[in-house]
């Protein structure tokens, strides 16, 4: 595969590889889909969580602070106060 030179030259080198790569990926996706279906992937309802992460008040406060900070930055930026 030609990896040097002008962009059209590199594209010409990549194109022949595109079909086998794409078709191979699609075939793999099909088999993985069936394998996951065979392991009840599409079962309705809530899944079991083996590890439930701790969620203390300080964690919740940080999450809310991050959301508020994001909104504040967007507003400040939109109103031109952030430069």
């Amino acid at each position: 595969m030609d990896t040097e030179g002008r962009i059209w030259r590199r594209a010409r080198g990549v194109l022949p590889l595109a079909a086998p790569v794409v078709f191979g990926a699609l075939a793999e996706v099909e088999e993985r889909t069936m394998a996951l279906e065979a392991r009840a992937f599409s079962a309705p309802g809530r899944q079991t969580l083996l590890r439930v992460p701790a969620d203390r008040p300080v964690h919740r406060a940080i999450r809310w602070a991050a959301v508020l900070a994001l909104v504040a930055i967007v507003v400040l930026r939109a109103t031109g106060r952030l430069g």
């Binding site: 392991r39 309802g45 079991t48 969580l49 083996l50």
Partner: peptide
């Protein structure tokens, strides 16, 4: 555990 977890079984049952 991926399959049993998809079924929503209790953790002790999954383990």
């Amino acid at each position: 555990a991926f399959g049993p977890c998809n079924l929503g079984l209790p953790v002790a049952e999954v383990v």
